[in-house]
């Protein structure tokens, strides 16, 4: 079910001014692969939040950093990988924010991870060879929209099952009818 259908890539300098380019890139992929509006919105805000965190916390004041974004469009899921060489920061280690408390202490950050958690189905993070990979996974609601291989197979299987059922039913009807005639 998870074979990669396609992969798109964008590499940006670690600077907030490239956030519109990231959002436009996602919008282009969404149009190309017919994402639903809700998939597009979820992916846009989650990637924006993740990239903002990488620039702010991963790279800090380092202006020469870059972020590689790979989008894998799969049959049943969308997977976005963000790769950076900044300071490691595993979002899974952070708890959910207490918003009233944040207001009291005038804390402005820390909301992004919470938003990502709300919109994404899975968040994976790993570091290897001074490179951090954050993987955001969104399960697809309507698999049959863009999945030419698996649905045809499963459709064929379903048709075959149905056909067998109909054959059995037809046989029993025909026997019954035969019985009536007899």
């Amino acid at each position: 079910m998870n074979q990669s259908v396609t992969q798109e890539q964008l590499i940006i300098p670690a600077n907030f001014q490239y956030l519109p380019a990231v959002r436009n890139f996602i919008a282009r992929i969404a149009a190309k692969y017919r994402f639903t509006k809700s998939e597009l919105n979820a992916l846009t805000i989650s990637v924006d939040e993740a990239i903002t965190n990488i620039i702010k916390h991963g790279y800090g004041n380092i202006l020469s950093g870059s972020i590689t974004m790979n989008v894998n469009v799969k049959n049943d899921r969308l997977v976005v990988e963000l790769i950076d060489q900044g300071k490691s920061f595993d979002p899974n280690q952070v708890g959910d924010p207490n918003i009233p408390h944040y207001v009291q202490v005038r804390k402005k950050g820390g909301l992004g991870i919470f938003i990502i958690r709300k919109f994404m189905d899975d968040i994976q993070y790993f570091t290897a060879d001074h490179e951090n990979t954050l993987r955001l996974i969104k399960l697809r609601n309507n698999v049959s929209l863009y999945s030419p291989i698996v649905p045809i197979n499963s459709l064929f299987k379903r048709l075959k099952e149905k056909f067998q059922f109909l054959t059995r039913k037809a046989t029993s009807i025909s026997l019954k009818e035969t019985g009536t005639f007899l």
Binding site: R23, T44, I45, D48, E49, T52, I99, Y102, V103, Q104, R106, K107, K108, G109, L111, G112, F114, I115
Partner: peptide
């Protein structure tokens, strides 16, 4: 058209004051 948490954070930073 669009807001991320950075935008929401602005309101959190000023409301108490």
């Amino acid at each position: 058209i669009y807001i991320s948490s950075a935008g929401l954070g602005v309101f959190m930073g000023f409301i108490e004051n």
